[in-house]
Amino acid sequence: MTPPTIGVLALQGDVREHLAALRATGAEARPVRRPGELAEVDGLVLPGGESTTMAKLAARFGMLQPLRDAVRAGLPAYGSCAGMILLADTVLDAPADQETIGGLDVTVRRNAFGRQVDSFETEVQLAGVPGPPLHAVFIRAPWVEEAGPAVEVLGRVEGGPADGKIVAVRQGRLVATSFHPELTGDTRVHALFVELVREVVELVPGARAMRARDHASSAGAGADAGSEGRTS
């Protein structure tokens, strides 16, 4: 069976680390910056970085709506840290005009653990991830303050001032973690996501081809996908 093709949103952030983690699990991984590239992947990782920067760049380059449409149409997505914020339906402690892709029925608080001096490493036990607890790196990380009924809580912080806070969730084809598995060399979270993508590809084998066709028809004949939607 051919491995699934998974994109990493490459507007800003720790893209390279996610690409490496995905490749280590046997997926084909590639950076995605344009709508045409988004149409050619079976799943998408939203990396760590600055969520405000990524959202603004996505809006300026005509990527925000295609991202929303793709997630709504069932494209599997995994977000770490800033990526979790981008997938959340509601964000607290964000600039008033911050936009998200949405799809996860959660309320996420940005920089919830504090500033950089409060960033930390700890162990987190994740439901659905076999083996010992994950070594989790939290960097100016968000947490999930409220999760809707359809959201499965995969992991919580244990001990310390943030004891019990939700830091990993799944809702259908969307997965999000507050922490950065891409920074540790432990690829179990990526393996979980790649498996999810694989199942979706088997279930709906023509999904990627359909998205690519839709993109080609909406971009218009002869239009360069790369320059679509660019505004200043």
Partner: peptide
């Protein structure tokens, strides 16, 4: 945590 913070600023 210190180096990882800079990784988040890349690009």
């Amino acid at each position: 945590v210190k180096r990882g913070m800079a990784e988040q600023l890349k690009g």
